[in-house]
């Protein structure tokens, strides 16, 4: 069992406190929804978890081992986000080959199948992709690398309704074939409401909610009645 622990993370940019004493635990094989408004600190938190940036205080651990500068632990996570960390001049095939080299394995068959479904040409250059296909390619990578924690930051950005549908279905297929932990950060709550098993809500850098969805739903009804969802609850 792998457990990802975030303990007492605080981070500020200049005078702005982006995260304030955030502590969370992510358990194996669950699908977490990381929800909150723009600027709530979701992306910053995911960047800190994956050691892309450093927290001011606090630490991130996998199985009680700090992930900072730790290949063995960092290699268990993959963060797909809006920022592009791939060379623009490389073809998608090259990026896949390099990714495979680093991780030691890669689900080629699945990646090829997805590329075909989404009609993504793997011989095109990364820098030439449209916003939608840029997201699709990075999602294909995220679903094909052999990691235990897949972190998706606004995964469906720039995808049309049809592609979004396809993505969620493929996510479930991939999850069923290889159960692992997903952390999906999004503001499109309705789309993931039934997909996630646990919900975390960040608001102004603080954890507002961290519970299984069922419990949240139970509370929601006693508070605001039917026809409402997590959104209504979180809006308070």
């Amino acid at each position: 069992m792998s457990v990802l622990e975030v303990s007492h993370i605080s981070k500020s940019f200049g005078s702005k406190n982006v995260l304030q004493d955030v502590s969370l635990t992510f358990e194996e094989n669950k699908i977490y929804g990381l929800l909150g408004r723009n600027g709530a600190g979701k992306s910053t938190l995911l960047n800190i978890i994956t050691n892309r940036i450093f927290p001011d205080t606090g630490e991130v651990k996998i199985d009680s081992e700090n992930v900072n500068d730790n290949d063995a632990k960092l290699g268990l996570m993959f963060l797909m986000s809006e920022v592009n960390l791939y060379p623009n001049g490389s073809t998608l095939n090259q990026i896949i080959a390099d990714t495979e080299l680093i991780y030691g394995s890669f689900d080629y068959a699945f990646a090829k199948k997805l590329a075909q479904k989404f009609e993504l040409d793997l011989t095109s250059k990364f820098g030439k992709l449209s916003t939608g296909y840029n997201s699709i390619f990075k999602l294909i990578l995220a679903l094909s690398v052999p990691v235990k924690f897949v972190l998706l930051d606004e995964p469906v950005l720039g995808l049309d309704a049809n592609h979004r549908e396809m993505f969620y279905s493929e996510l479930i297929q991939s999850y069923t074939d290889h159960p692992r932990t997903f952390i999906i950060s999004t503001h499109l709550i309705e789309e993931v409401a039934n997909l996630i098993s646990d919900v975390i809500v960040l608001d102004e850098g603080r954890t507002m909610l961290d519970q299984p969805v069922e419990e949240v739903l139970a509370k929601t009804h006693s508070v605001v009645g039917p026809e409402t969802d997590v959104t209504a609850y979180t809006k308070g």
Binding site: T50, D69, N70, D71, F78, Y86, P87, I102
Partner: peptide, 16 residues
Amino acid sequence: YENFKFLIQNGISRKT
């Protein structure tokens, strides 16, 4: 920096 970006995306530590 270019190589750092690609490597941190793929979970490679700064030490490595």
